[in-house]
């Protein structure tokens, strides 16, 4: 092999090795090797929209609230009321929170990787890294995220961190409770047994059994985000 050809070949190899990881970084799907992937199934046929889960969520997670200005009230979980546009249609109460997408747009757009998908599928925010640019709030199709508009003094639950002015917050499936072997507070607080939380990879879990019934749907499945909050009777 001539010296020139050798150099050429070396150059091609170097260029290819530089391009390959770069292209894989831009690729959307990422497979995790974790044996756990958490998901939530919400049985809308049982939900009457009492809103106890929303209240419990607000207290348990120190969600930033502003009683005097409704527009900057933050929500990790909210009850939406949905009905068709025809007269006399039934109004369905639907609890909405972060859908914990596998292909989360908020994680894609975050310039500092403050938003991330944990190995067990929970989408989280590192509030000590978030710069407060709010690009994730623009990108999220579920309006799951809220910005903390002002400094909040008190906190209702000392077990989880306080809110921080200037960063974005959202539902994290009550990650501190999960990590200590408990259920998310919305699941626990519901007296009608609307919500089931568990490991989607475990074939024996309640969530897998409900999902395998084939009757579940997710919100905006057309966006292909791999949301992990499923609804029965949507």
């Amino acid at each position: 092999m001539k010296r020139r050809d050798f150099l050429k070949l070396g150059g091609i190899v170097a260029a290819a090795s530089a391009v390959t990881p770069a292209s894989s970084l831009l690729y959307a799907g990422k497979t995790t090797t974790s044996a756990i992937k958490y998901g939530l199934v919400i049985d809308l046929t049982k939900c009457d929209g009492c809103g106890e889960c929303a209240t419990a969520c607000r207290i348990a997670n120190n969600v930033a609230t502003s009683p005097d200005n409704e527009k900057i009230n933050n929500y990790w979980l909210r009850i939406a009321r949905v009905k068709s546009k025809f007269p006399n249609s039934h109004e369905q109460a639907i609890p909405l929170m972060c859908m914990h997408c596998d292909n989360a747009p908020c994680v894609h757009v975050c310039p500092v990787k403050a938003s991330f998908v944990r190995k067990d599928g929970i989408v989280m925010i590192d509030k000590h890294r978030c710069i407060g640019c709010r690009y994730c709030m623009i990108a999220c199709p579920y309006k799951a995220r809220s910005f903390v508009f002002k400094h909040n003094e008190g906190f209702s639950n000392p077990d989880v961190p306080k809110t921080m002015h200037g960063v974005v917050e959202k539902c994290d499936f009550c990650v501190t409770r999960i990590d200590s072997g408990r259920m998310p507070v919305c699941v626990e607080s519901c007296k009608k047994g609307v919500m089931s939380f568990g490991n989607l990879f475990d074939p024996e879990s309640q969530v897998s059994r409900l999902i395998s019934s084939g009757k579940v749907h997710r919100v905006r499945e057309d966006l292909h985000l791999g949301a992990k909050v499923y609804y029965l009777g949507l």
């Binding site: 894609h108 710069i131 690009y135």
Partner: peptide, 26 residues
């Protein structure tokens, strides 16, 4: 205008420390 619009402009160096290749902002 961008940096002063952030909630935390004191973290101005973080986008250079933690590049996210999928983020247009990055």
């Amino acid at each position: 205008s961008i940096v002063l619009d952030w909630g935390r402009p004191d973290r101005v160096m973080l986008p250079f420390l933690y590049l996210n290749p999928r983020s247009i902002f990055s």
